[in-house]
């Protein structure tokens, strides 16, 4: 698993840097981006094996939209997305996995912020193994 590449997209650099440190310690190669535009650019240049995406960036739709963009492209739809969120537990929104639904959120897993290192590693490994 060591050679796998992970892209972390979050506007909080303290979060991206700490997650990066934890994941690099597990010998993952990590790229980071601070917003949706940079995220999409790095997604194309770095071709990550997994994306960790914050649901709330500049606007709270940014994470949503980026996940949809990745999952609607046949070339990139196989890349697993792990969503970091405090939203699910706060709003009770029941995210749907079908395209077209207003709450369609095509992600492969959720993690509550702040993330416990062990939980993060376990979840990342699970998703990579599945992919």
């Amino acid at each position: 698993m060591g050679s796998m590449k992970i892209l972390i997209v979050d506007d909080d650099t303290d979060i991206t840097d700490s997650l990066k440190a934890i994941l690099e310690d597990q010998r993952f190669s990590v790229a980071t981006a601070a917003d949706r535009a940079e995220g999409m650019e790095k997604f194309k240049t770095e071709s990550p094996d997994l994306v960790i995406l914050d649901v709330m960036m500049a606007t709270w739709r940014d994470g949503f939209e980026m996940a949809r963009e990745i999952k609607s492209d046949p070339e990139s739809r196989e890349v697993p997305i792990l969503m970091l969120t405090g939203v699910k537990d706060k709003s009770g929104i029941d995210f749907k996995s079908t395209a077209g639904d207003p709450t369609w959120l095509p992600v492969d897993g959720f993690l509550d912020k702040p993330v416990d290192a062990e939980v993060l590693i376990a979840e990342v490994e699970k998703l990579l193994a599945r992919a």
Binding site: D12, D14, I15, D17, S18, L19, A21, I22, D25, G86, K113, P114, V115, D116, A117, E118
Partner: peptide
């Protein structure tokens, strides 16, 4: 959340 995330790096 950022503080916790940073602390997690040290604790870990």
């Amino acid at each position: 959340a950022a503080i916790q995330s940073c602390l997690e790096v040290v604790i870990n």
